[in-house]
């Protein structure tokens, strides 16, 4: 039973953390351009862009 008392809050906390992270990403516009994000990884020398 003591194991449960630790594990359940941990499980919920991790899940909640994921949910909050998702909302954060959504608000920051990370889902605005999914096609672009998929393609951007292929631009090999992006660092050259000032």
């Amino acid at each position: 039973m003591t194991g449960l008392a630790v594990l359940i809050p941990v499980a919920l906390g991790l899940g909640l953390f994921g949910l909050v992270a998702f909302f954060w990403a959504l608000k920051r516009g990370q889902f605005e351009d999914l096609d672009g994000a998929a393609a951007r990884i292929l631009i090999d020398d992006e660092d050259e862009v000032p």
Binding site: G36, A39, R40, L42, I43, E46
Partner: peptide, 14 residues
């Protein structure tokens, strides 16, 4: 329509 186009456009403008 592709990564190459994106890079070209961004670089030309930058």
């Amino acid at each position: 329509h592709c990564a190459g186009c994106m890079a070209k456009v961004e670089r030309a403008l930058a």
